[in-house]
Amino acid sequence: MPAALVNVPPKARRGAVIEIKTLMSHVMEPGYRHTAAGEVVPRDIITSFTCRFNGAEIFRADLFPAIAANPFLSFFTTASESGKFEFEWIGDNGFVATASAAITVE
């Protein structure tokens, strides 16, 4: 059951630099562990994070082993116009989770 925490300021002045913070829950399996029978437990991690603003991609991160079980990503952008941020996490085994947040620029 993926749960995401997203922090986007609801309001900002035009041209202001704003910080966006995201935290995603994910039951990580690093891919280095073995079962009692000696078989490798398949890797299960989040591999990609994308943030789009009004449809245009503004931030992307590729994730690799040994980053975090529940990746916390924080980044900055400039508030240009009102609109909607869309966040997408993609991972192994077909994992997809999305979240969105709106901002009013005045």
């Binding site: 749960a3 925490l5 997203v6 922090n7 913070k21 935290l23 829950s25």
Partner: peptide, 17 residues
Amino acid sequence: DDDTANPAMLSVLEGET
């Protein structure tokens, strides 16, 4: 202190469900 950075809040979200 920041509820969007505190990983325990993910568990709270799950609890709400």
